[in-house]
């Protein structure tokens, strides 16, 4: 360690000072971005309420669905045919098969939200990686990856999903999520690619290269943290959109298989005119839930966006 000795001679700092100096440094450390986001939510009451609503609702739905056995929402009970809501046995009424809307709603929400989260993570992760790599390497890599992107965006996505769902015999929530992910990553990847293109031409990337850091380390450890605010906002907002994807498909009858409740299948009750006018409780609670969730998520997304952009920030230090 000849070079180390050299440094030791020229610097007045030696090993004994290490503990004292690092303590000094910790006292002077700067607040993290977590703190900034927290301040932003404290300043925006609507966003704060939204976070609480989303977190509480998801927790409730996931936990509650464990206590609802499958036969509870699957078995037909002719005696409670279109039971009115707000009664002791049926809090939110019953549908044409006499199944409790409240139980369907809880289990259905869990399925729909689960698919939306899975979809957001899978398609998001793929889209982010695709965009980052395409933008970072540029040149021929970017050319090929962009043409693949163009091809994917050209496909009629809804048609493909419907055909795939019809072809695959035994599909469930997991396969549906994967099929949907196949067609959902493009928007994210395009957005990330443009930022990655700009970011990877900056000097700190060149500095990392001369420091001997490998390409993929630079992409995921240097560039990705710098566009993390964009990623968080994009993921949050696409979660709201993905909630709609599954719901829309199930509404059309191509989403989850029969007998698996979801927000979409509950919404599908509204395809019947008598249900819309007379038996409104079969679909209206699902509709309200979708509206509330999407609004809440978009409020959260806006607060995150403001936290990422210091000129829009509401929260003060």
């Amino acid at each position: 360690m000849a070079q180390n000795d050299n440094l030791e001679k020229k610097s007045s700092i030696s090993a004994e000072d290490l503990a004292r100096l690092s303590k000094e440094a910790e006292e002077e450390a700067t607040p993290s971005s977590r703190k900034i986001i927290w301040n932003e939510f404290k300043a925006d009451k609507a966003a704060m309420t939204s976070v609480i609503i989303i977190v509480a609702f998801i927790l409730f739905v996931v936990i509650a669905s464990f206590f609802i056995p499958a036969h509870d929402y699957k078995e037909v009970n002719i005696m409670s045919y279109f039971n009115k809501p707000f009664t002791p046995d049926f809090w939110l009424g019953a549908d044409s098969s006499g199944r409790s809307i409240a139980k369907l709603l809880i289990v259905g929400s869990r399925n729909s939200i689960g698919i939306a989260i899975g979809l957001t993570f899978i398609s998001g992760a793929f889209g982010i990686a695709y965009g980052l790599i395409s933008g970072y390497f540029g040149g021929i890599t970017d050319m090929i990856m962009s043409r693949i992107y163009d091809f994917m965006i050209m496909l009629p996505q809804l048609m493909f999903i419907i055909v795939l769902v019809t072809i695959i015999q035994n599909y469930n929530a997991v396969t549906l999520t994967l099929i949907l992910s196949l067609f959902q990553w493009m928007g994210t990847s395009r957005l990330i690619r443009s930022r990655s293109l700009a970011e990877s031409r900056k000097d700190y990337v060149a500095a990392s290269k001369t420091s001997g850091t490998g390409n993929f380390r630079i992409i995921f450890r240097e560039i990705m943290p710098n566009i993390s605010s964009l990623i968080i906002v994009e993921m949050t907002l696409s979660f709201a959109a993905n909630l709609g994807v599954e719901t829309g498909l199930s509404f059309l009858g191509f989403g989850l298989p029969n007998g698996t409740p979801s927000l979409g299948t509950l919404m599908a009750n509204a395809t019947d005119p008598t249900n819309i006018t007379q038996y409104w409780w079969t679909w209206i609670f699902a509709a309200i839930e979708i509206i509330v969730l999407c609004l809440a998520v978009s409020y959260v997304g806006q607060a995150l966006r403001r936290a990422a952009d210091s000129s829009q920030r509401l929260g003060m230090e």
Binding site: D203, E222, N226, S228
Partner: peptide, 11 residues
């Protein structure tokens, strides 16, 4: 590097 700000990773 010339530009000291952009040559240090801001994150």
């Amino acid at each position: 590097f010339q530009d000291s700000l952009s040559s240090l990773n801001p994150r």
